[in-house]
Amino acid sequence: MERADLPGAAHLVLADGVVHLDPERAVFDAMLAGWERQQRTRFLKDATIRPRIALIRRLGEFTNSYPWQWEPADGEDFITHLRAEREGARPITVSTARGYEVSITLFMQYVTDPRYQWPAVCRERFGSVPQQVFHEGNSVAHVTDFEGQPGRRPLTYDEVQALFDAADGRVEHARLHGRKGALPALRDAALLKTVYAYGFRRREAQRLDLADRRHAPKMPQYGQYGAWFVRWGKSSNGSPPKRRTVLTVPEMDWIVEVLDHWVTEVRPLFNPGRLQALWVHERAGRMSLRSINEAFEQARRLAELPEELDLHSLRHSYVTHLVEFDYPERFVSEQVGHRYASTTAIYTGVSDEYRTRLIRRSMEGHSELWESR
């Protein structure tokens, strides 16, 4: 087969005529370098590529062999090992196992594709060629819509209030004891309330700038907090971050006062200068993703809420509560940036009270229908 200069092709990453002291390791490293190059041409991010490369190296270490030697049994044993109870390591979840299988399958598709010449290289040098490790018969079946942690769920209204009370309590505690943490605590409280009031993802909230504030013509009472323009929405398949505008809903209009207080009175005390970031830290820079997680975890501990709840649970809560406020499904999906309504449905966990209200409404409708007859 004529050599093609495809990104990641063997002859582009494996030098001809070079004698390696460890030829197997050299070819394996070249495979990984080629796969990385191939993925980068598809505009995949480092956050996607690097864990995939690390996973393939882990599989190589586990099997103590190389891709042209791997068999389906090796992949099965690897996943079984990661799913087992081991000292010092948590078993991986079903969804994580599936993700690992997908990554390994993508790598094997790359090294078994003759266009990249790895089968020919392996046959010539080692007398064997790579084969696919996972197939329909030995991979995790996708039988349910949601496979996340059962403990990760929407917060109830009481839990949301407890979380906010705990966040506000940190502010009062710092003030009473004359500590320097009052300003960061004020910021964290406003941040958590904003994440809930708009259903933001962590990165979406972290990347907000002051310039992303929007007026809503039909809701002038909210001023410049009628909506937020999200520029860093979740991307997919190497595409740029998705953009959307998130409106302030009347049930959450208390957030307008919270944000105005933060922007006009508290944020300037951090001396951010010309920095446009909405959420800033004590050194006048943009807050990190880790700091945002820590803000939630501190409030969760003080509120004595279950450890399984994380910052993303506030987004689940937002979706659920909009549904309970009787907003149309399409509107909710657009607010949170879901392409499909089925994704929004996975986030939704309506309360018994809401379902009871629906049943009563339905019964009242049936009663009126019978009476009219």
Rank of each mutant, 00 (worst) to 15 (best):
T194R: 04
E172H: 08
D158E: 13
D168S: 13
K193E: 14
L176G: 12
K193D: 12
H173A: 15
P184M: 06
A166W: 12
T156Y: 01
L183V: 15
R170M: 13
L183Q: 03
G178W: 03
R153W: 03
R153Q: 09
D168P: 02
L191E: 08
H177P: 02
R153N: 01
V171K: 09
R153A: 03
A190K: 07
K180Q: 14
A174E: 10
A190Y: 08
A185N: 11
L186F: 05
R152K: 14
G169L: 03
K193Y: 03
A167M: 12
L192C: 07
D188L: 10
A162P: 06
T156W: 01
A185H: 11
L176W: 07
E159D: 10
A174Y: 08
A189P: 02
A174M: 10
G169D: 04
L176K: 08
P184D: 10
L186A: 11
G169R: 02
V160D: 02
A182Y: 05
D158M: 01
L155Q: 02
G181H: 14
P184R: 04
P154N: 10
A174L: 02
A185K: 12
V171G: 11
R175H: 11
V160E: 01
K180N: 11
A167G: 08
A190W: 01
A166V: 03
